[in-house]
Nucleic acid binder design. Structure first.
Length: 626
DNA sequence: ATAGGGTTAG
């Protein structure tokens, strides 16, 4: 018995780990209990036939009890510590479905001289779960301490542990070790390393690693694209798609298309989205349901719901995601009634709606001012479909009531609902207060936002607009002073327009665009034309920048106006002008677009933070402003 | 001689 102890203890000391020391003691005691004399572990290696049998036996075990029995048997025959057998056994325990990490660690500690293979197995098993990923990193460090050199797989598994654990420092250490060990030419390892930097929001580091990969395949490109997606570098993704197509190493696959379509949806880049659609058809990805669902979303988010519907019609197997995407697309583009029809048709098709379907249905009601229907669906979703309203559903209801002028009812709903309201909820209500010039409630909502410590410049601007809309200039001055004292800065709004697959971005009084002179001249010309048609700049009701006075406001060039002017300038007559704005559209610009659509005979589609505004022949599809 | 890399479909 002394031998057992001293052997295991010396092992554990040599391998530098207090944890391991305790495990080793426990293990030694267990063997004492089993009356098992541990002699030289490898004294009787199984022959080739035995080994094969043992491994297949190990693989056939589905429960831990079976494996325990097998372990006892193998120990008795001195076969357990055969490296191959032990590895097979450990893998079985450490990976799903059993995935018993504490037990696998226990038996791992019992192995006299773990090699790199065993460590890899252990580290990989730890990289699969968030809660133990940290131990994977520790195992890696322990391995280095005991003088075993890692191979490319070790570094990869350890990197994955760092991703799960979220440790930038450990990951950088691994990166250094990769370079030291000369594994920097392993493209699969570097792909994982890219993903690591990406998940740590170190985009430029990820890009550097990408540049160092000698043979970049589709996966490497996709990881870079997902990195740009995370870091909101959406516009660069379009460039990457082209670069990928022009490279002779690899071509975009359906995963690439999913990313790029999402980028197009965010950027309002319809032309580019259509090109991706063409690519999808050329490569037979259009039979994939997730790709089609993404196409529906892309077309809807680009204000082109007809094309979204074309894709929808062409699909054979529509699931709940397909229907929900279509319903939301119809809703956000102002086709509330059609969205509700689609919902009914979905039920006829036997597809069961879920929570996100109802978000779409309720937003249809809010976008089309269907107050009664909204209330009806809100009641029915829980009663008839067992979908418990979440914060988005309550948000829609607040929006429906608020827009309809029932701001007090909306407030009561927020107060009485079983979910804690978030900042977005209060902002919805604040927006309703602004539309209906509800000063008292507006002040109260601001208090709630301050309480949440979530108030933004935009919230104060809304409050300012509420005060100015009722002519309370004293309060306007007061809020402006408050904002100045608090040092609250308004972020400049930006508008984008796509032209020949390129996205152009404008801020108010933009000076960056290469064709700015032409654009400003065009905008002046448009303003002149629109004034003849009765367009008056609305000064009093909309203030967007605390620094500005009314005179400057009247003369300022809003980002959406610049984008529209660029559209008029650079596209042939009759072309639809599609603009996306990251904040709410201004009332003044809304009027501007409305009159422009008649005077210049152009359809104008503006997507702002909340919804689409389709302008045609002097009218707008939305019911916000009139 | 190891279950080498990446996915947001609403």
């Amino acid at each position: 018995m002394e031998t057992v102890y001293s052997f295991l203890l010396s092992q554990s000391l040599r391998r530098f780990s207090v944890l391991r020391f305790h495990s080793a003691v426990a293990a030694a005691l267990e063997y004492q209990h089993q009356h098992h004399p541990l002699s030289n572990p490898n004294s009787t290696a199984p022959n080739a036939h035995q080994e094969k049998t043992i491994i297949s036996l190990t693989k056939s075990c589905t429960h831990k009890t079976q494996l325990l029995q097998l372990q006892t048997h193998l120990l008795r025959n001195f076969h357990f510590y055969n490296p191959t057998v032990f590895l097979s056994f450990l893998s079985r325990i450490a990976f799903p479905p059993l995935h018993d990490l504490s037990y696998s660690y226990k038996i791992f500690c019992q192995f006299p001289a773990p090699n790199v293979l065993l460590y890899n197995t252990m580290i990989r098993a730890h990289s699969l779960r968030n809660d133990v990923a940290k131990n994977g990193v520790l195992l890696y460090q322990e391995m280095l301490h005991s003088g075993i050199s890692p191979n490319a797989l070790t570094s990869m598994y350890a990197t994955k542990c760092c991703i799960k654990f979220g440790s930038l420092f450990s990951g950088i250490q691994i990166h250094a070790r990769i370079l030291k060990d000369g594994h920097q030419s392993d493209s699969l390892l570097l792909t994982t390393l890219m993903d690591f930097y990406s998940s740590m929001e170190k985009g430029s580091e990820a890009h550097k690693v990408f540049d160092e990969i000698s043979h970049r395949d589709t996966v490497a490109w996709n990881v870079l694209i997902s990195c740009f997606m995370r870091n909101r570098r959406t516009r660069d993704i379009l460039g990457l798609f082209d670069a990928m197509r022009n490279s002779n190493e690899c071509q975009p696959d359906e995963v690439t298309c999913l990313f790029v379509l999402q980028a197009c949806a965010n950027l309002n880049a319809l032309e580019f989205g259509e090109r991706v659609h063409k690519y999808i058809e050329e490569h037979d990805f259009h039979n994939m349901r997730n790709v089609c669902n993404s196409l529906i979303v892309m077309y809807s988010r680009c204000g082109c719901v007809e094309k979204a519907y074309d894709v929808f019609k062409g699909m054979v197997n529509r699931d709940v995601v397909t229907w929900s995407a279509m319903i939301s697309g119809l809703a956000s583009n102002g086709y509330g009634r059609d969205a509700i029809e689609a919902f009914k048709e979905m039920q006829r098709a036997g597809i069961v709606p879920d929570d996100q379907t109802f978000t779409g249905v309720l937003s249809a009601c809010s976008h089309s001012g269907l107050v009664n229907e909204g209330g009806m669906f809100f009641k029915a979703m829980k009663r008839d479909f067992g979908v418990v309203p979440n914060i988005h559903h309550y948000g829609c209801m607040v929006d429906i009531l608020g827009r309809a002028g029932l701001v007090d009812e909306a407030y009561d709903l927020v107060i009485s609902m079983p979910i804690k309201p978030d900042a977005a909820m209060w902002r919805t209500l604040l927006g309703a207060c602004r539309i209906h010039r509800h000063v008292i409630l507006g002040e109260r909502v601001i208090e709630h936002l301050i309480e949440l410590k979530a108030q933004e410049a935009g919230d104060y601007v809304l409050l300012l607009n509420i005060y100015s809309s009722v002519g309370n200039w004293e309060k306007v001055i007061e809020v402006r002073k408050l904002m100045k004292d608090k040092g609250i800065q308004t972020t400049p709004a930006s508008s984008t327009i796509e032209l020949k697959g390129r996205v152009h971005e404008f801020v108010a009084d933009d000076v960056f665009h290469p064709r700015k002179k032409e654009i400003y001249d065009k905008l002046d010309e448009i303003n002149q034309q629109l004034r003849i048609a009765g367009y008056v700049v609305e000064i009093t009701s909309e203030l967007h920048n605390v620094e500005e006075n009314s005179k400057q406001y009247a003369l300022s060039y809003h980002s959406e106006k610049l984008a529209i002017a660029f559209g008029v300038l650079a596209t042939p007559p009759g072309t639809t002008i599609r603009v996306a704005k990251d904040l709410r559209i201004f009332v003044d610009c809304h009027n501007f677009a409305k009159i422009l659509s008649a005077v210049y005979n152009r359809k104008v589609v503006i997507r702002d933070r909340n919804r689409f505004h389709h302008f045609q022949d002097g009218f707008c599809s939305c019911n916000d402003y009139w």
